[in-house]
Design a binder for these strands. Structure first.
Length: 630
DNA sequence: GTTGCCTGCCC
DNA sequence: ATTCTGC
DNA sequence: GCAGAATGGGCAGGCAAC
């Protein structure tokens, strides 16, 4: 397959926000792709170079890419930054430069998909001195053969930012559309689907001919027929049944992805062994699963409404997520939320669990504790997560305590078991106290129970609580309403904007990142940046809406100097910023920084002198750890 | 030899 | 991590 | 209701620049 085919698919995907159209285009592409190219194709469609579980990384981001563009197109870094500021996307910069060069350059080899992927793979080679030069050469080599559209996507692939609105959901659905039996009549009325099919694969798609029509009474019947007849076209009694059947087929693929985290393997099984093959795929202790994520609740009331009563509440610990595996040989491995293997970094956790009855998969939070057993701030424990050297030393200095809150595998997969049952397994497996312990939890019958437990959690220096629906299955990688977090709302601070940066992607024409400062003896001391909380679109029903456009215009007259994407401002505009915590900062001039900052509103009534002073920040810093003790 | 920028990944 | 947005 | 794309601070490691 030529890389240009992928590039033109990317162009079409970028041009629409409609999910069905995206799904249709992706499915057309994977349907016509040779089976041995499925792996690179599916990776590149996701904007990845390596599989999720592959520990390799390209090691190239903005700065190295600017060097590569400099080498490839002979343009100075300053000029590249200027164009970056204009387009908000280095891929678009490359495309522009490639266009300008196309007139001078004579021949170009055509790039094929396999070659592009293989070359990108080589970015990860670590070879000490000269590594950056090597990466620059690899990128330059690809760009020298790329037409403008290809250049755009080569750059974005290297940076891991396709910005096409295509994620795992659409690729999952596309695998279904391409390789599995489908109910008739669901998307026929959607013109885009037919469109894409006709355009890119004509009438001879592997699955469109020779279809046997089956009439099914229910969605469950349809799934059975689909399993036994890979070429089936399913006729359901009505649209609702057809949709149910479709959802069942999608869930089958989702299940296979959940347990494998490997799109190419799943696509191959779908193509060669159909639904039965997908259903037979199962969790393998030792292979990581994605973790289930919690939604944030605006209040206790809304949180409880989301999970339903009665429910379970747990402390929300300020540590990091660990998925602990014991395989059939009783070998332990530990994975982070992003499926990084951190077993080597945590020998202490390995010894905590090594005598549990495997095979087993536990979901837990690891928290740092000091000599007295009180919690350490997240910054401390984070020193251990990526450590490669002097690990034994760090194990001695930074002790961890592991709070187990879920069991995903115990005598078989527990994913579809109700949470209540999984939680019972936690209690059977893990003690209440000690270095490895069950997360502190309670049953909530009504709101006042939850409030009392929440107060207790805060008094014990936790971030807040988790609320979990008793009957919910474990949904790897999803952020669903059956699991919510409730955290305190912190007071905001009024701070002055002293610098800003132009945005990227769809926010390229606005200032989108703002450096904040507090006051100290007549000068501004930086305390961090904020770049979220503002809206892209004006909300007519809300007079107070703060948009990127509005703040950009408010700041424009204050611009003193610009360089690349950076903007220096006269410190006049005051904004209210919310945050979770004030931290000691090793980098900001004030000595403090805000954890999870977000913009609340403009304070046009305030002058720079009215912004928070360093003393106020210091007081807020000291004060925050007393919360919940009163 | 030391410092500082860059990257990726925790939150 | 938080937040906003489109389907 | 969910996925995706914007954006935050700080950490270790690794390379380049000094």
């Amino acid at each position: 397959m030529r890389f240009s085919q992928l590039a033109s698919c990317f162009l079409a995907l970028e041009a629409t926000s409609k999910r069905l159209e995206k799904t249709s285009r992706v499915s057309a592409l994977i349907r016509q792709c040779d089976l041995d190219l499925l792996e690179p194709l599916l990776l590149l469609l996701q904007g990845r170079i390596y599989r999720l579980i592959d520990p390799r990384e390209p090691g190239v981001s903005d700065r190295t890419m600017i060097k590569a563009l400099q080498t490839a197109y002979g343009i100075s870094p300053a000029a590249i930054e200027t164009r970056w500021r204009k387009h908000g996307d280095l891929g678009l910069v490359a495309e522009e430069l490639a266009k300008a060069q196309a007139q001078v350059r004579l021949v170009a080899e055509t790039l094929d998909l396999q070659r592009v992927h293989t070359t990108l793979t080589k970015l990860a080679v670590h070879e000490g001195a000269g590594a950056i030069d090597h990466k620059v050469r690899l990128i330059t080599e690809l760009l020298s053969h790329a037409d403008p559209a290809e250049a755009r996507y080569i750059v974005r692939l290297v940076l891991g930012q396709l910005r096409m609105g295509v994620g795992e959901g659409i690729i999952r659905d596309a695998i279904c559309w391409a390789f599995l039996p489908m109910p008739k009549g669901l998307f026929d009325s959607n013109e885009h689907c037919d469109d894409a099919k006709d355009n890119s694969s004509g009438n001879k798609t592997p699955t469109s001919g020779n279809r046997t029509v089956f009439t099914c009474d229910t969605a469950d019947d349809a799934l059975i027929i689909a399993r036994d007849n890979p070429q089936a076209l399913l006729i359901l009694p009505d649209e609702s049944a057809a949709r149910q059947a479709y959802n069942l087929i999608i869930s089958t693929v989702q299940h296979a992805l959940d347990v494998s985290n490997d799109f190419a393997a799943v696509a191959l099984v779908a193509r060669t062994r159909g639904i039965g093959g997908l259903q037979a795929m199962d969790i393998t202790p030792g292979k990581p699963l994605k973790v289930m994520l919690a939604q944030k609740a605006e209040s206790m009331e809304k949180g409880l409404a989301s999970v339903g009563l009665p429910c379970q509440a747990e402390y929300k610990y300020d540590g990091f997520r660990v998925q602990i595996h014991i395989d059939p040989h009783q070998e332990v491995s530990i994975f982070t939320r992003r499926l990084e293997n951190v077993t080597r970094q945590f020998p202490d956790i390995v010894s905590m669990v090594k005598d549990l009855p495997g095979p087993l998969i536990l979901d837990a939070e690891a928290v740092g504790i000091d000599q007295d057993g009180s919690f350490l701030p997240f910054q401390s424990i984070s020193q251990r997560i990526r450590r490669k050297h002097r690990i034994a030393d760090s194990v001695r200095r930074l002790r961890v305590q592991v709070h187990v809150f879920d069991v995903l595998y115990r005598q078989g997969s527990m994913l579809s078991r109700p949470f209540q049952e999984r939680r019972k397994a936690v209690q059977e497996l893990v003690p209440i106290n000690g270095p490895l312990q069950a997360a502190t939890a309670t049953t909530i019958a009504e709101e006042k129970d939850a409030v009392a437990f929440y107060e207790k959690a805060l008094a014990a220096h936790n971030e807040g609580i988790m609320l979990k629906a008793f009957d919910a299955p474990y949904r790897p990688g999803s952020r669903v309403g059956s699991m919510v977090k409730v955290k305190p709302v912190m007071d905001g601070l009024d701070l002055v904007i002293v610098e800003a940066e132009w945005g990227e992607g769809k926010r390229a024409t606005w200032l989108t990142s703002f450096t904040l400062a507090c006051q100290h003896q007549g000068t501004c001391l930086a305390i961090g940046k904020v770049g979220t909380g503002l809206k892209e679109k004006l909300d007519d029903s809300d007079e107070e809406t703060l948009t990127f456009a509005a703040i950009t215009e408010a700041l424009r007259p204050l611009i003193e100097r610009q360089e690349g994407r950076a903007v220096w401002l006269r410190p006049e505009l005051v904004v209210e910023v919310a945050f979770e915590e004030i931290q000691k900062s090793p980098s900001y001039a004030s000595g403090y920084a805000l954890r999870f900052p977000r913009m609340i509103r403009l304070r046009e009534d305030r002058a720079a002198d009215d912004a928070a002073s360093l003393d106020e920040v210091r007081i807020a810093y000291e004060q925050q750890y007393r919360r919940g003790l009163t």
